[in-house]
């Protein structure tokens, strides 16, 4: 495999998909973030922690512009890093993925990874807007979230390895095995310790838009990486020989 070409196409695909993710967030998630931060500000004023002064709003505008401006850049960074993981797994699993086109193969893998390392963990520990989340519990929540992703991801990998040793007819048992495994983990893992005190329509709307934006990322990643792989064929090289 051509190492430089492989690394470059994986990183570029992840970066482009991440930029799409960041842009989608700006359009569909940002209004919910603004609303949630507005509630946070009202709570600060009513508790006396901050004063509703022109100076406050100047400072607020300054850091909110910085935060919003970071959406696309953070999308590019996160997209590149998750894309790097996706590229590694795609390179190892490409031959065993169904389909005769690399875009189809990449979309199937993107779907599997979306489900196992994003959506199932999301169901257990859903995304929350600002105002939900106690700073005192952020380390615990981070450990729980990452642990669940790791358990689900490595669990899926383990069952995939197991499926390679079984006949085709028995592969459904592996999917059922993963479903049972992750259901047990789902029930056994502790709940998010924070109480949701924000309005539920805000929280539900935010979560729905968050899922849509992340799903757009995974679809974009599958299409772009698959198309790049199809075009650049990093696993193939032209060799000349004399006969």
């Amino acid at each position: 495999m051509k190492t430089a070409r492989f690394i470059a196409l994986v990183l570029l695909a992840g970066c482009f998909a991440g930029i799409i993710h960041g842009t989608a967030n700006l359009v569909i998630v940002e209004p919910y973030l603004d609303e949630a931060i507005g509630i946070e500000n009202q709570n600060l004023f009513s508790s006396g922690e901050k004063q509703d002064t022109p100076e406050f709003w100047v400072e607020y505008s300054s850091y909110r512009d910085w935060q919003k401006g970071g959406q696309v850049l953070a999308g590019a960074i996160l997209g590149t890093s998750v894309g790097a993981l996706f590229g590694i797994i795609f390179a190892f699993s490409r031959r065993s993925l169904p389909g005769n086109h690399n875009v189809k193969k990449a979309l199937i893998l993107a779907g599997i990874m979306w489900l196992t390392i994003y959506f199932i963990p999301f169901l257990k520990y859903p995304a929350n807007p600002p105002t939900v989340g106690d700073p005192e519990t952020v380390v615990l929540r981070s450990i729980l979230y990452l642990s669940f992703i790791a358990i689900s991801g490595f669990g899926a990998l383990g069952f995939y390895k197991l499926s390679n040793r079984l006949d085709k007819g028995k592969k459904i048992a592996v999917i059922l095995g993963y479903a049972v495994f992750i259901s047990i983990i789902f029930v056994a893992m502790p709940q998010n310790p924070d109480e949701v005190t924000a309005p539920m329509d805000l929280v539900i709307g935010f979560r729905a838009m968050s899922v849509i934006a992340v799903s757009i990322y995974w679809i974009a990643l599958g299409i772009i990486l698959g198309a790049f792989w199809q075009k650049l064929q990093p696993d193939k090289s032209l060799q000349t020989y004399t006969s």
């Binding site: 495999m1 690394i7 996160l78 890093s81 790097a84 993981l85 590694i88 060799q239 000349t240 020989y241």
Partner: peptide, 29 residues
Amino acid sequence: SNFEEIIVSKQAVPTFAVVILALIFGFGL
């Protein structure tokens, strides 16, 4: 002598690439 060109498929994933990509994944995350 005749020169012929063939496309060779090399499936092995380079360890160097995996290490680089894994580092980028961890750092970015």
